[in-house]
């Protein structure tokens, strides 16, 4: 979670952060406020990956099917695995 060192940390609001977990994965989801806008950060503390999605990217997720995510999970621990 290297991104925690950057300037956005100051903008963190605990109400904006929550954990989504099941027995297979745990992710920390939070709103990240930039100077001019907002993104949704999804971080995997176990794997060390994170991504920040803007509203348009998030919206594009809404028309994906499970197949999209099954394809993502062809490498179940991220790239190169």
């Amino acid at each position: 979670m290297g991104d925690r060192q950057d300037g956005t940390r100051a903008g963190r609001n605990s109400q904006d952060e929550f954990v989504i977990a099941n027995e297979f994965a745990t992710v920390i989801v939070r709103k990240v406020h930039t100077r001019n806008g907002v993104r949704l950060e999804i971080a995997s503390p176990k794997l060390g990956h994170s991504i920040r999605l803007d509203p348009l990217e998030l919206e594009s997720l809404t028309w994906q099917t499970t197949e999209t995510f099954s394809r993502f999970l062809e490498t179940p621990f991220g790239p190169g695995s």
């Binding site: 394809r71 999970l73 062809e74 179940p76």
Partner: peptide, 22 residues
């Protein structure tokens, strides 16, 4: 939606289909 095995990481859809193999 998917189950990921904690031994070698084989990952299945909840339909049972194997989709991810490290």
């Amino acid at each position: 939606s998917h189950f990921r095995c904690s031994y070698h990481g084989w990952t299945y859809k909840n339909t049972g289909e194997l989709i991810g193999v490290p």
